[in-house]
Simulated scan of single mutants.
Amino acid sequence: MIDETKPLFTQIAEKVEDSILNGTLPELSRAPSTNELASFYSINPATAAKGINRLVDKGVLEKRRGIGMFVTEGARALLINEHRTTFSENFISPLLGEANRLGLGSEDVIALIEERSRELHLTTALDPTAAKG
């Protein structure tokens, strides 16, 4: 799990987010406690708590006194929207900027994405017939 470029508490928060996004930690289910995370990843409980508290502040987890942490209703949608925005800012905006510099229109960019997708044997929402071929 250790990525030297990111603080451990950020990595903890991301691991929990990934579990919510991929469905292994469903909404309204009990989330791992700070002590469980600290033990599993062999880190200080305060570090795990900092990561968990980020998710509480974000509205993804909620503390239920005496029974633990739980994934909030709507947490997955919240995370999907957040990640979609980040994806757009980090990848789509630079892609469109470069396309503009090259004089490519949106149809050209879509065609390039579809071409690359076929080359990589990926199915995309842009080409729903690709899965049938």
Rank of each mutant, 00 (worst) to 15 (best):
I2C: 11
G68T: 02
E119V: 05
S19P: 02
F87N: 05
D57R: 11
N44Y: 09
I43S: 02
Q11V: 00
V71H: 11
L96G: 01
R116A: 13
T5D: 09
T85S: 08
A77P: 00
A130G: 01
P26Q: 11
I67H: 01
A13L: 01
A130C: 02
L55D: 02
D57E: 13
I113P: 04
P26G: 06
E62C: 10
K50W: 04
R118N: 13
A31F: 06
L28T: 15
D18L: 14
D3I: 04
K132I: 13
L55V: 05
F40K: 15
G105N: 15
N22W: 05
Y41S: 08
D127H: 03
A13C: 00
V60P: 02
R64C: 04
F40C: 07
R30I: 12
M1D: 01
V56C: 01
T34I: 08
A31S: 12
R118A: 12
K58V: 05
R116I: 09
E14D: 14
L126M: 14
R84K: 08
R76D: 13
V71T: 12
S117D: 05
V60N: 01
H83W: 14
V60S: 02
I43V: 12
A48L: 11
I52C: 13
S106R: 12
R76S: 12
T34R: 12
A99V: 06
E17N: 08
K63A: 09
E27S: 15
L55F: 03
I92A: 04
L95C: 01
F87Y: 11
P94V: 00
S117P: 01
A38Y: 08
S19E: 12
P128T: 07
D3G: 03
E73A: 13
G51I: 00
R101C: 08
S39N: 12
I110V: 15
Q11Y: 00
S29P: 09
L95N: 00
S117R: 00
N100K: 15
L25K: 06
G68Q: 03
D18N: 14
K15C: 04
N81F: 11
T123M: 07
T123R: 10
L61W: 05
L79F: 03
T124S: 05
N53D: 13
S88Q: 10
K15R: 14
L28V: 15
I92P: 00
E119C: 04
R54L: 11
S33H: 00
D57C: 02
Q11L: 08
E36S: 11
N100Q: 14
I52S: 15
G66Y: 12
A46E: 13
L96W: 07
A131H: 05
G133T: 08
L120S: 01
P26S: 07
E115S: 10
S39M: 04
K15N: 06
G59I: 03
D3K: 08
L55I: 03
